[in-house]
Structures are given as structure tokens and as C-alpha cells.
Amino acid sequence: MRRTLIENLWRGRLTEPAPRITPAEPADLAAALDRVARRRLGRSLAIRAFDAGSCNGCELELIALGNPFYDLERFGLKFVASPRHADVLMITGPMTRAMHAALRLTHEAMPAPKFVIAIGDCACTGGMFAASPACLGAASQVIPVDLHIPGCPPDPVAILQGLIGFASNLSGTLNRAPVPSV
């Protein structure tokens, strides 16, 4: 193990600089996010991933956010196990009927202030499953959504840009470039 660790030190860091965030990206953010929420959360967001029936493609890219190239946690963003610890409910999938009750319970379990982000075409519009009798379609059909990040699946950079922009907007620092870790 020692050799592996030393080799990796020698090889250097895989982690890449933060993606560029333009103010236009998180366009559908609620500009009216209240001040209390901004002050409490700062730029840190705890995220509870919620699979509302995705094909698991979006999950693969959410998992990739944790790999050494993207290293999500350096931005103060992290996935948490319990909705009671979460600020953000991150929905993937075309909202199957079978997951509707679980969505309501999960959202209710989250403390305020809380936000909802729809990831991927299915959660944004219902995608290819919009007409399915087993699905309710876009997440916004059943719950107010604060941010949409489309794609099938969206690649990790697109998700990161959306999330960092969202967190910056919350703390009123949208135009300040996020500081990459040293």
C-alpha cells in the first residue's frame, strides 16, 4: 500500500480546476430566495439524491462528481445519506407513480430552507418517458423545482456548473469565481 500511496504522490493531482461559471447558467434560479436562507447556508449545500425512476445513467454521473477529477466536496457540496441533513433534494428520473409517496416523505423530512434540483432530461421534462402511464413526468409536475440541469445524462461538468452557480447565488456571490482547492 505504501508504494501505491507514494506513486500517487509522485503522479500528482488528478483534480481539475473548477469549471467556469457564467451568471446566465443558473437562469431559472429563484431570484427571490429569501435572505435568511442565503445567510444560513452560505456556499455549502448538503444534497440528498433522489432517484424517481431513472435508468441509472444520471446516477452514474452523480457518482462521478465524487471522483478525483471533479472532487465535489471541495466546493462545499456533498451528498448526504439522510434527508434530515439535506438542503437540496436532487431528483433524477421521470417521477414514477411508485416513487411519488417516497418523494413526498423525503421532502417532508428535510428541514427548511430546502431546495429542489431536477437533474437530467427525465426529471426536467419527463424525457422519453413523458407519455408513460407509469410516470407522472417532470419533477415540477409534483414539486416546485428551483433549478433544472438537462442532459441525457448531463455530464459532470454541466452538473457542477449548475450546482456551483446555485450555491453562489444562494450566498449572493454569483459573480465571484469559485476558489479551487489548493
Binding site: G53, T96, A98, P133, A134
Partner: peptide
């Protein structure tokens, strides 16, 4: 299971 049922074959 059945939570991700999307009726894909039907579609």
C-alpha cells in the same frame, strides 16, 4: 422492486 417501473416495453 418495481419503483423504477416506466412501462418501457409498452412505450
Amino acid at each position: 422492486l418495481g419503483y423504477t417501473h416506466k412501462a418501457t416495453l409498452g412505450l
